[in-house]
């Protein structure tokens, strides 16, 4: 799980081009959207794309996406549960 969390943080910084943020600055439990990192709806879609491309897991709706993508922790748990 630790490795997965680290990978996810690096992936987010890289793919979403968060240039002024270091991957290990991201707090695992913090919300990713609105507060915390302050990502937006397009970032959500791009994250869902990462999940599909890298982990082979498809999220079918934005509603489902909102729950899964709440924080790095929820994403990691979702991936682990759906492997």
């Amino acid at each position: 799980m630790e490795k997965l969390i680290e990978d996810l943080k690096k992936e987010i910084v890289n793919k979403l081009r968060l240039e002024n943020i270091q991957w290990d600055d991201i707090v695992t439990d913090d919300p990713l959207f609105v507060e915390g990192l302050g990502l937006d709806s397009i970032d959500a879609l791009e994250l869902m794309l990462i999940l599909e491309k890298k982990y082979g897991i498809k999220i079918n709706s934005i509603e489902d996406g909102k729950k899964v993508l709440y924080s790095i922790k929820t994403i990691a748990e979702f991936i682990t549960a759906n492997k």
Partner: peptide, 9 residues
């Protein structure tokens, strides 16, 4: 498949 919404937008 696997298309980036950012690029389309």
């Amino acid at each position: 498949a696997l298309l980036s919404p950012t690029q389309f937008m």
